[in-house]
C-alpha cells in the first residue's frame, strides 16, 4: 500500500495488486478452459519468433502470444510483436 502511495505521488501509474490479480487470472483461466496447454502456446510462440526474425528485426522477448475469448465464445490466438525494422538481406525487398 505504501508503495502505491509513493508511485501516485511521483505520478507513476502502476497497476494495483487487485488489478494485476484479475488480469493474470483472466489469462490463465482462458488457457485452462481452452484445453490448449501453455507449453503448446510457448512452442507456437517460439516458432513465430523464428519466422518473423527472418524478415524483421525484433526483440525475441517482446513477442507475446496469448489466447483471447471472442464474443461468440471461440478462442482467438493473439500475438503482439514489436518490430524495429526490416532485415537487410538478399530476397527481402527494401522499404
Amino acid at each position: 500500500m505504501s508503495n502505491s502511495w509513493i508511485n501516485r505521488l511521483l505520478g507513476r501509474s502502476v497497476p494495483t495488486p487487485r488489478a494485476c490479480a484479475k488480469e493474470r487470472l483472466l489469462g490463465v483461466v482462458i488457457e485452462d478452459r481452452s484445453a490448449i496447454p501453455s507449453s503448446v502456446l510457448e512452442l507456437v510462440r517460439l516458432e513465430i519468433v523464428e519466422v518473423v526474425k527472418k524478415y524483421l528485426i525484433i526483440d525475441e522477448q517482446a513477442v507475446d502470444l496469448k489466447l483471447e475469448k471472442d464474443e461468440d465464445g471461440t478462442y482467438a490466438l493473439v500475438s503482439h510483436v514489436v518490430s524495429r525494422g526490416v532485415r537487410k538481406k538478399e530476397g527481402i525487398p527494401a522499404a
Binding site: 500500500m1 502505491s4 494495483t16 495488486p17 487487485r18 488489478a19 490479480a21 484479475k22 487470472l25 483472466l26 483461466v29
Partner: peptide
Amino acid sequence: MVKSQDMLSVEDVQEVL
C-alpha cells in the same frame, strides 16, 4: 484490502468465473 485495491473483490471473482 479490496477498498485499498490490494485484494480481488467479489465482483472480480464473479467476472473471472
